[in-house]
Each structure stands twice: as C-alpha cells, then as structure tokens.
C-alpha cells in the first residue's frame, strides 16, 4: 500500500482525563469502530495502534489510553513522555471533569518539552439534557490553551473520527513546519516499520477512513 513516495509518520497520542469520562469508549469507537456498554475501567494504560493515509503520509497513531483513576495519576508521565499529541477528554455532564483538564494541561505543559498537539474533547454530547459544561466555555478555554476542540459522543459516533483526524493533520503540519517537533524521530521508525506490518485489523478500516469529509461540526480552532 505504501509506495516509496509516501512518507510514513508515526505519532504518539496520549488520552487523558478524569475517571469515567469515556476515554476508553472514545478510543474504542475510533480504533475498533464500535461502542460497548460494558467498558470496564482501564487499569494502568491500554495501548492501541491505528494506521491510515493522510495526504502523502502514511500515519500510524500509537494511542495510549490511560486510566483515569487517581492512583494512576503518578504513572501518567510514563505514558505522556515523548507524546506528540494529547486528547484531553472531559464529560460534558460533569463540570468537575472539565476543571480537571486544567490540571492536566498544566502538567503537560510543564513536563513535555516537545511541541504537543492538544485536543480538548467534550465527550457524551448525546446527553444534552444534563449538560454541565457549555460549549462556549469549553471553546473559549480551548482557544486560550491553543487547543483543538471537539464535542463527541462515543455512543452515537459523533465527532470522534473528526477529532482524531484533526489531531493527525496537526501533527503532520507540526512535522512539516517545525523541525524540532519530536516527530522527525519517525525516520527511525519508518525503517523498522517496513519490516513488520502487523495490525492487520486496523488496515481493514482504512477505506472508511481515507475519505474524511462529512463533518465540520467541531471547530478546529487550534493554531
């Protein structure tokens, strides 16, 4: 699939946020294309990979879906170290989960020295009736931290693909414009990647992925 002219880009995405906001559901919706009601709390962190084509790039996302539980908080650096992007997930029905994002942003800014694509994700947007965080407020906050912003519903499959796609686009942009993006280390991965192309299940979904056009619901207000 990948011709020699196509560049390969490998990006590490860390998904953070409070307990029970739906981080795993969002990731599984994106990677596995499904929603399970019986997602059990993540222990430590789960690792997913997702590959797709984006313009001239063959993008491989390494997604670290972290546990939201307090006790794993001290482990977080292990997962966000060398990350290229962070999905900051909160639950639109819980203002606490939204305020927790601010701590995360602070922590990430202090500890990650490479440029980091941020994407604020307000999950559970199907629960409009119990909304506790207004879209305006979140949008305003997102632009103040120079972050993308999407409201998503893993349940109804709204916004998830767009959010990840925008993150990937930003990473490509970052790679092209910023030589110190941290993403240029991918040259190493490029070689090694050609030797083992595992993840065949993710390849299957590629077609659905390569034509991302449908929605502009989220306002990509990043840089």
């Amino acid at each position: 699939m990948s011709t020699r002219t196509t560049k390969s880009l490998e990006g590490k995405v860390v998904v953070v946020g409070s307990q029970g906001v739906g981080k795993t559901s969002v990731v599984i919706r994106y990677v596995g294309g499904m929603f399970s009601k019986a997602v059990s709390p993540t222990i430590g962190a789960s690792f997913f990979t997702y590959k797709f084509n984006l313009g001239n790039y063959r993008v491989k996302l390494q997604v670290w879906d972290t546990a939201g539980q307090e006790r794993f908080r001290s482990m977080a650096p292990m997962y966000y170290r060398k990350a290229n992007a962070a999905m900051l997930v909160y639950d639109i029905t819980s203002s606490d989960s939204f305020y927790d994002i601010k701590d995360w942003v602070k922590e990430l800014k202090n500890n990650v020295d490479t440029p980091l694509v941020l994407c604020l994700v307000g999950n559970k947007c199907d629960l409009e009736e119990s909304r506790a965080v207004s879209k305006d407020e979140a949008e305003e906050y997102a632009s103040s931290i120079n972050s993308l912003f999407y409201e998503t519903s893993a349940l109804k499959n709204m916004g998830v693909d767009e959010a990840f796609l925008q993150v990937a686009k930003q990473m490509v942009h970052l790679y092209e414009t910023n030589p110190n993006s941290g993403l240029n280390t991918m040259d190493l991965y490029m070689k090694s990647e050609s030797t083992h192309s595992d993840d065949n299940n993710t390849d299957i979904k590629l077609d659905a992925k390569t034509s991302p056009n449908n929605s502009t619901s989220g306002s990509g207000c990043g840089c």
Binding site: T24, I28, A38, V39, S40, P41, T42, I43, G44, A45, S46, F47, F48, D65, A67, F72, M75, Y79
Partner: peptide, 17 residues
C-alpha cells in the same frame, strides 16, 4: 485476582504497575 477482576485487559495490550 488482578486478571480475574479486570475486563479491560481483554480489549487491548495493557501496561500497568
């Protein structure tokens, strides 16, 4: 007990302390 009590390991590879 850890393995028995956790469904989440079934979805993906996990890395946990």
């Amino acid at each position: 007990n850890l393995v028995n009590a956790s469904e989440s390991f079934k979805t993906a590879e996990s890395w946990t302390p």
